[in-house]
Amino acid sequence: MKVTAASVAALAAGAVAAPSNTTPRSPSKAAAACSSAVTLDASTNVFKKYKLHANTFYREEVNKAVEQITDATLKAQAAKVADVGSFLWLDNIANIAKFDPAVEDLPCEDILGLVIYDLPGRDCAAKASNGELKYNELDRYKTEYIDPIVAKIKANPNSAFALLIEPDSLPNLVTNADLSTCQESKTAYEEGVAYALKSLNLPNVVMYVDAGHGGWLGWDANLKPGAEELAKVYKNAGSPKQVRGYATNIAGWNAWDEEPGEFSDASDAKYNSCQNEKTYVTKFSAALKTAGFPNHAIVDTGRNAVTGLREEWGDWCNVKGAGFGVRPTADTGLELADAFVWGKPGGESDGTSDESATRYDSFCGKPDAYKPSPEAGEWNQAYFLDLLKNAKPQF
């Protein structure tokens, strides 16, 4: 990297795993499924027609959290979080079992957001959310992970799906090429993402490939290489028509349109003109268009209500003082941004603060990280309450 801070920011890769619980949960209500097959036009913004589904798994997590709250006002506010649409993380082979009960709870007017997240050598630049597959197990990724998901989507043609493809993968290849773990994973990442895009190119699916955030690929030196990396994999997949664009700020903390940006006063700010996600979407979309990749974005606003909390761009783990942000909506004020979404379910940990744990990552022990925190994906009640209290707008 030409810019030291950019390589540090690239370590924002980790700890976005979903909970490991695979127990099917009862639908919260009877869903009125579509009466005929769904066809999504990926040349349009489908979030203008469909509402992001408040999936049954996050709903139950929130409902359990509500039961533990004694303050009446806070309890009422917390209950409303269960109705917010968020993406469901299929973060390992076992968690594909979450698919069926989630679809059972899906009305026709909603779209189910799914995170496809189990690449071989996953999160090569972080430890907190390393995956189950080794870097040389690409065949398992294809046959035991992607293929079963494809089969389930094909078995549900009357439902709409928005897929967020492999957080942190391709951005890591752009900025962390010096790490041996990322070098080992390069082939599996590129071939795996291409296989996922090609295989999941189904009529009732719209796909967004993860592209980090403004503090990662937004550095001036990273914009063009980042766009070219996404375009390379997309073209290798045959330029699937159901790919709409990319996802930004997933499990992140960056403000949408704050001016000046959170790190605008930093000594190296002159090397990063993308000081907020709105600027990043504008600039990265232009680079993607040049590279030949669909250039519309979805932006995670699930935890970005409060800024000025981090010491550096790259601090990604359970940031103290964070708050729930803008609820999912297609009203972003920018044509290139299809929707604000909740990608990371607020309350699920980014990674453990236990230094003796195998998956401990030093970023989870930094001064701006909340402590104590459990393993990635496990529920942290105290942190959930902070997100609720600091929410903007408030519930």
Rank of each mutant, 00 (worst) to 15 (best):
N92T: 09
K75A: 03
D268P: 01
A376K: 07
G346A: 15
D139Q: 11
D110W: 10
A125N: 11
Y141F: 15
S36A: 14
A65Y: 08
R25D: 00
A194P: 10
T70W: 02
N304H: 04
K75H: 08
K198S: 05
G85D: 10
D257V: 09
S264I: 03
A30L: 13
D257S: 07
A6L: 03
A221C: 06
A255W: 09
A82F: 02
A286H: 01
A10N: 14
D100Y: 01
L387Y: 09
K344Y: 06
A255N: 13
F57Y: 15
G292T: 07
R244C: 15
C317W: 06
L74N: 06
S353N: 08
T73Y: 03
T279D: 12
K29F: 05
L74V: 06
F57Q: 13
D100N: 08
F384E: 11
K152F: 02
Y208G: 09
N136E: 10
K389T: 08
T23E: 11
S159H: 14
V46L: 12
G343Q: 04
P345Q: 12
S28W: 05
F57M: 04
W89K: 02
A10T: 13
V341P: 02
V174A: 02
Y234T: 05
T4N: 08
V16I: 06
L164F: 14
G131Y: 03
K48F: 10
D91P: 11
R327E: 14
E311F: 01
G346D: 12
Y50M: 10
L74F: 05
G302A: 15
T301Y: 01
K366P: 15
Y195L: 13
S356P: 10
G131S: 03
D123Q: 04
R310L: 11
F99V: 07
Y117G: 00
G377A: 11
E190C: 09
A155S: 10
D210Q: 03
V3C: 13
W313Q: 14
L202T: 00
P101S: 05
Y117M: 01
G214P: 02
K64T: 06
K186I: 07
D178C: 11
G245C: 10
T329R: 02
A32I: 07
L112F: 02
A162Q: 12
E335D: 15
G261V: 05
G121A: 08
K392W: 03
A305W: 00
D105C: 02
E311P: 02
A297F: 00
E104N: 13
